[in-house]
Design a protein around this nucleic acid. Sequence first.
DNA 1: AGCCAAACTAGACACTGTCAAGATAAATCA
DNA 2: TGATTTATCTTGACAGTGTCTAGTTTGGCT
Lengths: 205, 205
Amino acid sequence: MKAKYHHGDLANSLVSATVSLLQTRGLAQLSLREVAREAGVSHAAPAHHFGDKAGLLTAVAIEGYGVLAEALRASQTLGCRSPEQRLLDAGFAYIQFALSHTAHFEVMFHPALTHSESPEYVTASLAAKAVLETCIRNFLRQQSPLEQIPERQIQATVIALWSQVHGFANLWLAGNLGDVTDTVRRDMVILDVLASVIPRPHQPT
Amino acid sequence: MKAKYHHGDLANSLVSATVSLLQTRGLAQLSLREVAREAGVSHAAPAHHFGDKAGLLTAVAIEGYGVLAEALRASQTLGCRSPEQRLLDAGFAYIQFALSHTAHFEVMFHPALTHSESPEYVTASLAAKAVLETCIRNFLRQQSPLEQIPERQIQATVIALWSQVHGFANLWLAGNLGDVTDTVRRDMVILDVLASVIPRPHQPT
DNA sequence: AGCCAAACTAGACACTGTCAAGATAAATCA
DNA sequence: TGATTTATCTTGACAGTGTCTAGTTTGGCT
């Protein structure tokens, strides 16, 4: 833990400090220099490890994609549940991630803040998206096992459900969902909302 | 149009300049001083009219709420359509607003950027939300005119559909919906997605 | 021991938001 | 009309920011 010239694990410390500051002060007030101060290093140290501010936020986003993917996977592992319940659990996990990892979530979905074309970013992003898509594909497969669903419709469903939970999280974080603050009612609202949009088995064109 | 000491309509000009700069350079690069430069006034002129940067963005957000509300209203005025089509049109209008007024949309749903507790902001925000809610209520009313739908379920549907279009717009703007760039396929994707989540007449609890 | 590359610091520069104080023009009123 | 008041805008300053360059320290290697 002694931080002299060679911190040992400064890169990770800087990412942690960034997340911490994002949660407390918010994105607008975040500064590289304050991150450096929080980590106890000089003001230009972050630039050495991450190039620039966008590079640091890129690391935050990549970490976020990993956490999200893991959360989605974990939501599907426990057995003995109906396909609908599994899908609800995935959506619930997505929203819970967004609400409990506000800093990561915000950075992940604002590509202008990051180097969103860097290989590591693209890889992490696609990996998380793949897990999400798998959840929905599994649901559709188990829901209508006999008939083949056209790929186009699968894609539309993926986008629709993703939009659903993503929009809910965004509206919630932006304070647009009223003053449902206490946890109990919050969970009920989320489940109500999610349950109301499980797609029908046969969708009319 | 001559801008000497008294510009005449500087406040509006500053808002326009802000929107223009937001579209070209993006939120991260926006600076009060550049806005002032764009409007041809001194660097501290914006502060006089809007107090601070958040004040200027507040004006942008309020303008955005007005445009959104008007777009939603306009989507419902033309007659002779099924309730489903009307609902689709409302959702489509919401998404079209988000994609064509990126600057406004981004500012509107990031309360940390604005004085989101100011009376004008709250009024404009609630007004737009009320129009949106009316669209959905009208749909539900026409869809099942006989039975009374519990208020709780109506609220859940409002949140669900709002989340739907809001999340779609966000994911789209963040570049997470693949490379569906040309307009034709874009419209089809949007309609596919929207059509796939029109709520069922009778939702199981 | 000697050297090298990586890790970090120190200083500087242009730029930012905001504040105080001053200058100017328009509106008001005698 | 002419004086004064008021809103509008400018000027200058300050602390803080991101990033660049050059320098300093350190650990690992042969």
